[in-house]
Every structure is written in C-alpha cells, then in structure tokens.
Nucleic acid binder design. Structure first.
Length: 871
DNA sequence: GCCTTCACG
DNA sequence: ACGTACGTGAAGGCG
C-alpha cells in the first residue's frame, strides 16, 4: 500500500470558499466564510483520503518571479478583498492549532510549491492529491498525482478528480500539453496574455496536432484557421512568455520536510478553542466531545422518586439563583399522563452539583411539576429561563422583579442573530460545547445549567456595555406586558371578514377574465415569471428594471406602464385584491380562536434595531394606506361595552432626530408646533412658508423620511421620480437648513466606524460590521444603518417605556381596559366605556413622559367602535 | 428553501 | 463603477 500526501493550495481554496459562500461573521465582527468553507473542504478531503501526510501551501505577498515578468509587461493584479485578506492570517493560526504543516516561500507561487513537492513526493514513491480551485495545476497530473478541484453546487461541495488520463479525456491533451494550450489561449485571471484570436478550441486543436507551441510555430503557415498561424508568428514572443508564465516550476529550491508534514491529531484543544471563537458549530461535532466530556454532565440526575422530587423543590426555593427548563419529551411516559401543553419534563439547576431533570409519570403529573416549579419561581432569589414569556401561563409564580430571561439578555448583547438557543448561550457565555446527540433529559439539564451559569457573565457584559438598565427596567418588564397583550388578543368579526373575502373573490375572478382577454391567453398572474413573459415578450412593453431572475414586475415598474397599457392597470388592481384576500381576508380568518379573538405573538428578540415584531398573524401590517384595504380594519372590534382608543406618536423619529442632533432650527420648529414638512419645504425650496405648494410639501416630507433612513441621493431620486442631481440638491439644501443634523449624522457614522456599533438614547446597541467592508455597497449600507438605527431604535425604546407605563397604570387603577396592540409608534387599547376618560389620560401621560427630550412628544388619539374608526 | 412582491411603521 | 433607501412578516411561485 503506497503512502499518500495531500497538498492543499491554501489561497486558491480560500478564494473559492470566499466567493462561494455568503458572508459570515462571528461575534467579534470577524469575517469567517472563507475559513469555514476551507475547513469544510479540508475535512471532506481528509475523510475521503485518510492520508499519512498533509501540507497547505500559501503564496507570500511579495512579487514572484513569474508574475514580475508579466507585471512589467502589463498592469498588476487586483488587490484582495479586505474581508478575505483578514481571514488569511486566521486560517494559518487555525491550521497551526490543528498541527497541520504549512509552507510558504518568498519568491514562489503556491503552484510552484505544489509542483515541486508533488514531483518530489512522487519520486519518493508516494501517491499525491493536490487540492486546488485552479485548473492551472492540471499540468501536474500523472498516474500517481491526482488533481482535485472542489466545486460548490447548490450548497454542496463536489470534487472533480483528474489523473493524467482524466485530463486527456476531458481536455484532449496530456497534462504536459495542457501548458502549451494555455500558452496559446491565455488566461485573464492568471494574467497570461496568450495569442490574440486563439481561444480554447483552436488552441487544443493546434496542440493536439503539433504537440507544443515551438513545433506549431515552425509550421505556422499550415495552421488552421490561417489567422491563428499568422497571429502565432506575429505574437511569437508573447506566446513564449505565456508558456513560461503558464509553466509551473517543479524543481524550485524549497525547504520541504516530509517528516514535518506527517498528519497527526488535528482535533487539539487549541483547535477546538479556535472553532468555538469562530462559531463553527457544526464543525465542533467532529471533536471528540467525550474527551472534553463536559465535566458538569456527571452531576446531571434524572429523578423520578416523589420524595426526592419534593426535596429538590424545597431546596430550590431556598436557592439564590435557579436555572430552569421545560421540555416536550417525557421519555417513556404513557400518553395517558401527557399534558395538554405538550410538555413532559422540567429541569432545574441551582448549584454546581444540583442539576436535576424531572419527567412526569404516573406518580408525578405535569400539572404538579408546573405548580412546584412555579413556587420555586416565586421564592428563589432569581429565577432564570430561556424565553420566559412562552411559559408564563404555566408558571404564574414568576415575579417580574426576580426573574432573568437569558434569551433576552443574549439578544441585547447581539441583536443581529437569527436565533438565541441555549446551546449558543452556553458556548458564548460559558465556553461550554453541547453535543447535539444527547438525550432529552440531558438536554434539559444543560439548558437549566446554562441559565444558572450564564447570569453572571451576561449581567457583567450588560453592565459593561451600559445596557443593564435597558435590560432590567425595559426589556424584562416588557415581557410581561407583551404576554398580557397576547393573552388578551383582539376581537374579530368572523362573519364580516368572510363576506369581505368573498366580495374580493368575485372581483378577482372578474379581473382575471379581463386580463386573460386582454393578454389573449390564460396564465398565472401571480407568477412574476409568467407575467414578465406576457408583458415584456408578448406585448413588447419596455422593461425598465431587471431582477436576478428576470424582468421586474414590481409595482413601481408597472405604475409607469399603467398609463400606456390598460392591462397593466388591471394587473395592479388584481395584485392588490389578491394580496388583500390571501394575506388578510383568508389569512386572518385562520387565526380566529374559539373565543372569537386573534391571539398573535409579539417577538422581542427579532429586530436589529430593538423594535418588536408580530407574527402568526402579523398584526403590525394590517392595511391602512389604501381605502379598500383599510376597510379590513372594520372587522377588528372591541368587546361589548368597550371601545377602542388608538394613540400614536406624531413624527416620533423626526423629533428624536431633533433631540439627538440638537439642531436649533428643528428644535425650535417642534417647540412652536410648526408643520415640519411645510417648514422644510419652505427652506429647501426657498419659498415663503405660506406659499409652499402641495408638491413641495410632499417632496420635503420625502426628504425628511430619507434623512431618517440614512439619506442617499439615489434613494431619494427613486422615491420622488426625479434625477439624482436634483435629489442631491434637495439634500444639500436640507443640510444647509438644518446644519446640526448634518454634523450629527456625520459624527454618528464616524463613531460607528471607530467603535463598530451605534447606540440609542437608552443605550441599546446595534453592531454595524458592514462599515469595515471593502465592498462599496455593503459599506454604504453600513453607513445608512448607522444613521437610521439610533433613531429607529430610540423610538422603539420610547414606546416600550410607554407600554410598560400604560400597562402598569391600568393595573394599578384596577381598570378593565387593556393594551392589546402595538404598531411601532401606535398603541391600541380596548377600553371599558366607563373608563374612557381615565384611559385617555393614562395614554397621554405615559406616552408623553416616556422620554424627556428637548422637544415635546405629541400623541394623537382617536376612539371608535372598530379599529377603522379609531385610526 | 429562496425569490419576488407587497402590506405596515 | 458599484446599483440602494431603514425596519419587519406572509403568501405564492418555482426548482
């Protein structure tokens, strides 16, 4: 059995991984996609090959001989993207930690290293596998040297293998001849000029016949097509240069030590720590977890004895901190004992050696476990869980002053993540890796233990980042308010909703027929692809925009076509109705509960800015702008004897901008209760306040919005259908009018670039890793985010404070009225009719005093017998 | 599962 | 030159 060496072309594989994978970033803001992709390929290769030797080659960033020759001749290479560059030293460290040999030598390209080592090792009787993304290396293939080229296809890595015979089969030439083919055809990515007018096809034919360029040159007169021969003669010097450039040096002077390349244990403790830091969760599974077998597991106990269980609860009640978890699986419990909630087990941890998992069974039903756990929550010094809101109905003993939600804390520490699992929290806060393949009982123990132990590091981090008060005084209390809102729900007239839906249905059928008639055929109007074919191919309409996949048929494109093509107007109408029916009429009907109310979910750990989001259904995007859609709000009604009070902040984001920027003009305008859009129009368009036209005011309003979004002339020009130049002029005039705003926005972006994050007035942070990007688009996005997040986030903070205040005051006065919805700058209260005056007073007071700004916070309020009326 | 579109602030 | 407004969630189409 021959021994084997695997040689990896480090830069080439990194490069491939970098461009083949979406951008990934770890908690430190370090880009990791290239490293991740590299390691995936590495592991795949090692699994397949199981080699005795392994070496990774790297280029050194000094100019190399072969390229120096060319760069004198023509230009230089593109610089490496910053996101990739920063990953190069890291992968080298990671490889070192994995005890994998690397080699780099000034003056030599990776290809030359690969070639030289490959020839050397083959001579020593080894099999060689070269892993590279670069087809150049195909010239190195022999009977014992295999070139392996990884390809990313639909997320999966497939590897193409080439021995010498495979090169011949696929390219029609031997590996050696492959050099000459390349010399003729050239390679722009490798800066090989080649011969003009000769591409892959011609080059291959010529070399198949004449074997090398020298011979072909001698027979230049006979080449086909004649033009190729003529060019080869004319560009002979360039062809010779290209051959030199294309030839990999297989006899370079290098210090390669085969013994040092011996492949040993790569799963070292150091490597493990790197993988943790880089947050490569699924790669961590490859490490022998038994070895590091989280010592804590030996204290996990599953308890079923009733007396023992009771003793545990007693002790937990006395503890300073208790971590708890509730899980679905109850092990072998009979269905007879299962709980309507679906839960079958609890776990609790209150000391290093007190970690218990308790399933329900015939002696101990779930009801009992919940009630005892609830007692623990009521008595323990601090009760810690993940996603407390989810369990509040089961654990009424939880007290808001003495509980800690680890998920909410994790969200504040990094609001950019998609989810906040206890596994992530354990890894990030406790450096504890949890195997995915463990029993439910063990899992529950881990979760409870994580909750117990993560409190300290998380509290410390929240304090260090200035977010502890935000956590304790806003986010934690808010969870209880959101829970009450969800439980209250909102009453919906099911019959009315159904009728609204069928009316839409009739109209949709009518429009469908008309559209098919006008198009001359039937097609799926809901398919942008089919619609694009009809409009732009069949009916030859001018196509203004394209998406990645084809023509854009978005509303703003169709709007421009509608005046000229009647069918487009019909399609827009169809779209509007189809949306109303599917998402709202039919969609909402599915969520009406047995009590005639919709109980949606308010999510507290989703948005990057601190806003709340609403799902199942989304009650924050019920139509309002168009009358037809707005009618849906008539089915949202208060209960008998109640009335809706809807209160919304007037221009809260612009007021926050006024406060934060300290701009004198803007502040004065708000203090004097001026019409801000009219005033902006007057200044930006140099028109007396009284003479501002409606159009001017509309445009000024768009500018004001744009400022909050992180203004760009392009964005504004799109919104207003004006040229970029005009938009730029508006912006310039805006900044002349409100110079404080300009200074504020510039400062905010600069500080964000320095610190890597922006903050709200209440201390909430949003990291902005995009600002470090070398990509113009990404960086610009980062700048807009830096301008927008403090404003949107502060508004989110303020209304959260108001919600807590309103909720607290309603309860303190023991009113029947209750808060039921939040729509970012708006609160909806279902008010008992006799309490109306009090409710209005509470709303106004709590909302207005939620923050003390340099400008007043103004609240508009309406009442009505439906959401339609109250808005 | 991703893309496109569209509803809201 | 790059090709965008900020923040969300749901539905339908398509591979």
């Amino acid at each position: 059995m021959r021994e084997k060496i695997v040689l990896i072309d480090g830069h080439s594989i990194l490069n491939r991984a970098f461009y083949g994978l979406p951008d990934l970033t770890n908690a430190e803001g370090l880009h990791t996609n290239a490293i991740y992709g590299f390691l995936n390929i590495l592991f795949k290769i090692l699994d397949e090959e199981n080699p005795q030797y392994l070496t990774v080659t790297f280029d050194v960033h000094a100019p190399t001989f072969r390229h120096e020759m060319y760069e004198q001749y023509k230009g230089t290479r593109k610089p490496m993207a910053e996101e990739l560059r920063q990953q190069v030293p890291v992968i080298k460290e990671v490889l070192q930690a994995m005890q994998i040999a690397t080699i780099e030598q000034a003056g030599l390209e990776a290809d030359d290293l690969l070639g030289t080592i490959s020839v050397d090792c083959e001579a020593k009787g080894l099999d060689v596998s070269i892993i590279s993304g670069d087809r150049d290396t195909l010239q190195l293939a022999t009977e014992h040297v295999k070139i392996r080229i990884p390809k990313t296809k639909q997320g999966k890595t497939e590897i193409e293998d080439y021995y010498a015979s495979d090169v011949l089969e696929k390219y029609g030439v031997t590996p050696e001849e492959f050099i000459d083919v390349k010399a003729l055809m050239g390679d722009t990515s490798d800066n090989i000029p080649g011969v003009p007018g000769i591409g892959e096809k011609t080059a291959t034919k010529i070399i198949q016949e004449y074997k090398n360029i020298e011979n072909a040159h001698e027979h230049a007169g006979e080449l086909k097509p004649p033009r190729a021969g003529k060019n080869l003669a004319e560009y002979w010097e360039q062809a010779k240069l290209s051959k030199v450039l294309a030839t990999i040096n297989t006899h370079a002077e290098i210090a390669f030590d085969l013994e040092a390349a011996k492949h040993g244990n790569i799963f070292t403790k150091e490597a493990y720590e790197y993988f943790q830091r880089l947050q490569f969760k699924n790669l961590l599974g490859r490490f022998d977890v038994e070895a590091s077998a989280n010592e804590v597991e030996k204290y996990f106990k599953e308890v079923t004895d009733k007396k023992a269980i009771d003793a545990i609860f007693e002790k937990a009640c006395q503890a300073d901190i208790v971590g708890a978890a509730i899980s679905k699986d109850a092990g072998n419990v009979l269905p007879l004992f299962s709980h309507p909630s679906g839960y079958g087990r609890i776990a609790l941890a209150f000391g290093k050696e007190q970690i218990y998992s308790i399933p329900c069974d015939m002696h101990t039903d779930m009801e009992y476990l919940f009630s005892r756990l609830s007692e623990v929550a009521a008595h323990a010094g601090l009760f810690v869980m993940c996603d407390i809101k989810r369990y509040l109905a089961l654990l009424p003993g939880i007290v808001r002053e003495r509980c800690f939600d680890a998920v909410i804390a994790a969200y504040l520490l990094n609001p950019l993540k998609n989810d906040y699992t206890y596994e992530d929290i354990a890894r990030e806060q406790l450096h504890l890796m949890i195997d995915e393949n463990i029993e439910e009982s063990t899992k529950a123990c881990y979760e409870a233990y994580t909750c117990l132990k993560a409190v300290e590091p998380m509290s410390k981090k929240l304090k260090n980042t200035g977010m502890y008060r935000l956590f304790e005084e806003i986010e934690m209390p808010l969870l209880f308010t959101l829970y009450d809102m969800e439980r209250a729900g909102i009453k919906v007239e099911a019959e009315e909703l159904k009728m609204y839906g069928s009316r839409l249905g009739e109209q949709i059928v009518r429009l469908e027929r008309e559209i098919y008639e006008m198009a001359g055929e039937e097609f799926n109007i809901n398919s942008p692809k089919q619609l694009g074919v009809i409009l732009f191919d069949k009916l030859k309409m001018p196509h203004a925009k394209k998406t990645k996949t084809g023509y854009s048929t978005a509303a703003d494109v169709l709007d421009k076509l509608a005046p000229d093509f009647p069918i487009v107007a019909k399609i827009l109408e169809y779209r509007q109705l189809a949306k109303l029916k599917s998402t709202y009429a039919d969609g909402l009907a599915n969520f009406i509960g047995k009590d005639g109310r919709i109980h949606g979910t308010f999510n507290q750990t989703i948005t990057a800015t601190g806003r709340i989001s609403s799902t199942e259904p989304n009650l924050q995007n019920i139509p309002v702008r168009m009358e037809l859609g707005r009618l849906i709000r008539k089915v949202f009604v208060p209960e008998e004897g109640f009335v809706f009070v809807d209160a919304d902040y007037s221009q809260i984001e612009l007021r926050i901008l006024a406060h934060c920027s300290g701009d004198a003009q803007l502040i004065q305008a708000y203090r004097e209760a001026k019409d801000i859009h009219r005033m902006t129009a007057s200044q930006v368009f140099h028109t007396p306040f009284e003479k501002v036209t409606d159009l001017q005011r509309r445009n000024a309003k768009a500018v004001n919005f744009g400022i909050v979004y992180g203004i760009s002339s392009f964005g504004l020009s799109q919104d207003l259908s004006i040229t970029r130049k005009e938009a730029a002029k508006y912006i310039e005039h805006y900044f002349e009018t409100y110079p404080g705003v300009k200074v504020f926005l510039d400062d905010t972006v600069n500080q964000a670039k320095e610190k890597g994050y922006v903050s709200t007035l209440f201390g909430r942070r949003r990291p902005v890793p995009e600002l470090k990007s070398s990509n113009f688009m990404q960086r610009s996005f980062g700048e807009r985010v830096a301008m927008n997040a403090p404003i949107q986030g502060t508004a989110a903070d303020i209304i959260k404070v108001a919600m807590i205040g309103v909720d607290r005051e309603l309860k303190r006065r023991k009113l029947k009225s209750r808060l039921i919805l939040q729509v970012h700058d708006e609160l909806l209260i279902e008010a008992e009719k006799g309490e109306l005056a009090q409710v209005k007073e509470i709303l106004a007071e709590q909302m207005e005093k939620a923050a003390d700004l340099k400008v007043p916070l103004i609240v508009d309020m309406h009442t009505g017998q439906s959401w339609y009326e109250a808005k």
